[in-house]
């Protein structure tokens, strides 16, 4: 049996050689990155959106049209966005899977790479390795109610999934979005938020941590608002992403509301370098966030050591 057949058979229990790779063998995880998963594709920044005072979204388009055309990814998958001379970082792909013109990444200015990314202008070149990791099991969720619970820039990790479920609205039951930020200024994707609020086929609850001049919407921390909303767990999938402290209390809240570990999902952020399950930076116990995640169910996380 050749390696190609082996991998195609879903076994994967052998290693590849250069001859296999030249013959077109690829692995489940590698996909289009089979040849050289370290080599970024050059892309051009085509648009920059100032989301909040310290978050910018970058829309980038691969320079190689063939790469752009071939691009396909699942909601929840991530990519490595980088600048040659500075480095790469992992970000969720937050444009819709159906968007064929560009990939969108949202970047909060914090460290070396993110600060350099914030200096970019439209027309500048970046390196992109994408897609990587596993997305949410949106197919398996068909027919279920979906509850999104997000805080701050956690929205970036769920945006593509929200888009997917809204684009396939008839496949899902009730869709509820609970989104909170410190202040109204810190709410990302205001263009989405406006849309969610006017749509009749979903429920969107937007909250900020404390009173703010001019804010007439809801005030309160996300976990508290969740408790007040008291969503029913029956036939519902809850997906949460946000600052670690928020996730912690949301998970406790969901448990109190009788959500099981199997119906609760989150997506993790870890320091990553290679993004392909080798360099050993993002592992939590035996799971590598870059290839086994970043999407995990609570049931999977419970098996892992306390190294979140």
């Amino acid at each position: 049996m050749t390696a190609t057949q082996n991998i195609a058979a879903g076994n994967g229990k052998s290693r590849l050689t250069f001859a296999d790779v030249k013959a077109g063998a690829t692995t489940a995880a590698a996909g289009t990155l089979a040849g050289n998963p370290y080599l970024p594709q050059i892309a051009t920044v085509i648009d920059i959106i100032d989301e909040t005072p310290n978050i910018k979204s970058f829309r980038v388009r691969f320079d190689d049209e063939a790469v752009m055309d071939a691009l396909a990814f699942d909601p929840g998958q991530v990519g490595q966005l980088g600048i040659f001379g500075v480095g790469e970082s992992t970000f969720a792909i937050n444009s819709s899977c159906s968007e064929k013109r560009y990939l969108q990444f949202s970047v909060m200015k914090a460290g070396e790479v993110t600060s350099a990314l914030h200096e970019l202008n439209v027309g500048d070149k970046v390196g992109v390795r994408a897609p990587m990791g596993c997305g949410f099991p949106v197919e398996a969720w068909k027919g279920k109610n979906i509850l999104y619970i997000m805080g701050g820039i956690g929205s970036a990790a769920l945006r593509a999934t929200i888009s997917y479920t809204l684009e396939h609205r008839e496949d899902y039951g009730d869709i509820t979005i609970l989104y909170g930020a410190r202040t109204p200024l810190d709410l990302t994707y205001k263009y989405d938020v406006e849309d969610w609020q006017v749509r009749k086929d979903i429920e969107a609850v937007i909250t900020v941590d404390r009173d703010f001049p001019g804010w007439e919407g809801r005030v309160g921390f996300v976990p508290t608002v969740l408790e007040e909303m008291a969503p029913k767990p029956a036939n519902t999938i809850a997906i949460t992403c946000g600052p670690p402290i928020m996730i912690k209390f949301v998970l406790q809240g969901l448990q109190k509301l009788q959500f099981t570990d199997e119906q609760t999902y989150t997506t993790l952020e870890k320091r990553m370098k290679c993004g392909i399950g080798i360099c050993g930076r993002c592992n939590i116990g035996p799971r590598y966030v870059c290839v086994d995640g970043p999407v995990f169910s609570m049931a999977e996380l419970r098996e892992l050591p306390d190294e979140m």
Binding site: G12, R15, V21, T27, G277
Partner: peptide
């Protein structure tokens, strides 16, 4: 580095 288990091949 050889993609065992369906992972990536490292050139």
């Amino acid at each position: 580095f050889g993609g065992y288990g369906g992972f990536y091949f490292d050139p």
